[in-house]
Nucleic acid binder design. Structure first.
Lengths: 343, 343
DNA sequence: TGTTAGCACTCGTCGGGCGAGAGTGCTAAC
DNA sequence: GTTAGCACTCTCGCCCGACGAGTGCTAACA
């Protein structure tokens, strides 16, 4: 079901044009503007096929075509131009980011500002942080044969809990024993201090229940990450208003709302992923507010311990190529600045 | 030119109604809704007079009346109801502000959030800060017979200058002498350290030029405040979108832009004023972006040295009574929290 | 003299109708 | 397989008239 060369070119033209103009694009326009030596009628036939394949849609009969979510996905995966920053952009970036950096917080702010300015989208940046909350007590409680409750008390005197589904949950006595082991081994530790030897030791103590240790540790880390507050900065929220897709104020309002709430921002940034730069288009995002938006996201880390994320939010009709290149450029800068700060 | 009792009541009705509905209000509506025992025709006559007096205007012939800026000013000065917080509001406020306060920054954030939530306007809060930049050198340069240039060098090696208009500017030699006195007395000092005895001493040294000392000191303090960076928090920017007066996205955009720029925010907060709570309506504000808005502003201080501001931005059609009462309530809370933190 | 009813008038809004324009799908010919 | 041509669809902007809210003025009334 691969696209023919011509279909590819037509799809590319449609997406590029739509990214620029936000207007549905018709066969005649393509024929004229992109001069590919075929008539508009032929293009119409191809467009009809592209629509059948799900790459483009019509807002209404007898209007031009608009890329669909699948179309954008294909674009990002297979035909996005690999732009690099223009010299002006790089210089601006250097100037903005290295200007007066004397602490991480400031760098994060500047990063967010730079991202928003260069892309004209909305930037979210989370601070890399060192996890510091200490575990005090861990207790597991059986719920049913597959589920247990994990309860944790931290040195900040907060109690957190989370249900946990296991292939087969041990019974009360066993859980109690395991809870004791966990408390003994982890009490007083931050999650940074849970290292390989410690894990190996616990695996041994867990004996035949070793297989449930990692899910439990994962949950504990999650709870603490939740507890540690990570600062999040945004910039360029107002850029949203410039896009015709947000002319309806209520849509914009929902996004502004989210941008003001730390929890919402953290949810948007989500868990760090393995990939370098991730592009999440429209409803690929599970967060409802962003169903009309795309999110471009990257993570960075310092010595694999402390990680932060940077992301861009824009309409699904984003200039993905440019946004990705700016994000990459900034990522480079962050890394070098952080390295410099570390010394 | 005092208003008759009846005119007063009619104006009050118009303003209260308009604050609620954002719709021009006609004579019949007043007659029906506010049952003041006179016919709509009479009200029409009175409204015509109120319009001549400048308190209300018509968006177009044959539409209802809308309060003018002068009308709002009169309302705020003379007829604003003195509301106090509802018990729910006070409790919410207590909960929000005292919840988990362990540092000033967090309190500021929470204050901004609370203000925005309770009023549904946009809140700006600046952190109280200890001025720390030290003066190194002060030099005054004559420009013409009324104006001098004040140039200051600080220990952070930045040079700042500002024109200053005086009733009669001394000539070059005098200014030079006075500059020397200023530099001698102020060098190495922060603005916190400019106290009464020091000022008295300088007044003596200034001799017959004593009267220009205070404006000069004012300018110096201004320049340093400018230099010291003060953190500013905002909350509820998205509330702006809910007002029909900002249905035109471009207006909203300008405000969002300002809310994202620290310098703009500081300009909005402006210099601390003597008054407790200030209401600045529409074009009374010199900042262009806010010409369609009103600003309610208050300052607070710790031992008269370190001051911060809190402010609310809304459409000129604001519920001034409520906003002022919330601001007052929050001010109280800030003061007590700060006092507690101090110990 | 102040108040009111009545009336003519103004102006913005809303909905319907209409033409222009953009774009499509289909058909038939090349 | 490609293209010209054509009928058709749908949106958009425009005009127009009806409607309603509201006014100012006048004349009558207490």
């Amino acid at each position: 079901m691969a696209l023919s060369d011509r279909q590819f070119k037509i799809l590319e033209a449609i997406i590029n044009d739509y990214i620029k103009t936000a207007e549905p694009i018709g066969s005649r326009t393509i024929a004229k503007k992109y001069a590919m030596g075929i008539s508009s009628a032929t293009i119409r036939n191809e467009m009809s096929d592209l629509e059948d394949l799900g790459f483009i849609t019509q807002p209404h009969t007898s209007s031009g075509r608009v890329p669909s979510q699948k179309g954008y996905r294909f674009y990002v995966d297979s035909m996005m131009p690999h732009k690099s920053l223009t010299p002006e952009e790089s210089m601006l970036l250097q100037r903005m980011i290295f200007n007066n950096i004397y602490q991480v917080e400031q760098m994060m702010r500047q990063t967010a500002t730079a991202l928003a300015r260069l892309t004209r989208y909305t930037a979210i940046v989370s601070e890399p942080y060192l996890k510091k909350t200490r575990i005090k007590h861990v207790q597991m409680i059986p719920v049913d044969d597959k589920t247990i409750f994990l309860v944790m008390v931290t040195d900040t005197k907060s109690v957190k809990n989370q249900p946990l589904t296991l292939p087969a949950a041990p019974d009360y006595d066993v859980l109690n024993g395991l809870s004791n082991i966990l408390t003994q081994q982890l009490s007083g530790k931050t999650i940074r201090e849970i290292d390989r030897p410690l894990i190996d030791e616990m695996l041994k103590s867990f004996g035949r229940h070793a297989h449930i240790l990692m899910p439990i540790l994962g949950a504990i880390v999650g709870l603490i990450q939740d507890e540690d507050d990570m600062r999040v900065f945004t910039s360029g929220a107002k850029n949203i208003l410039a896009f015709p897709e947000f002319a309806d104020i209520r849509k914009a309002e929902a996004i502004f709302q989210a941008l003001e709430e730390r929890d919402a921002l953290i949810a948007i940034l989500g868990q760090p992923q393995a990939e370098d730069i991730q592009v999440i288009i429209g409803t690929e995002n599970t967060i409802d507010i962003l169903k009309d938006c795309s999110l471009i996201k990257a993570n960075y880390s310092i010595d694999n311990q402390s990680t932060g994320s940077i992301a861009l939010i824009g309409p699904t009709r984003m200039d993905y190529g440019h946004a990705v290149s700016v994000l990459q450029g900034i990522l480079q800068n962050i890394k070098s600045v952080l390295a410099a700060l570390d010394n």
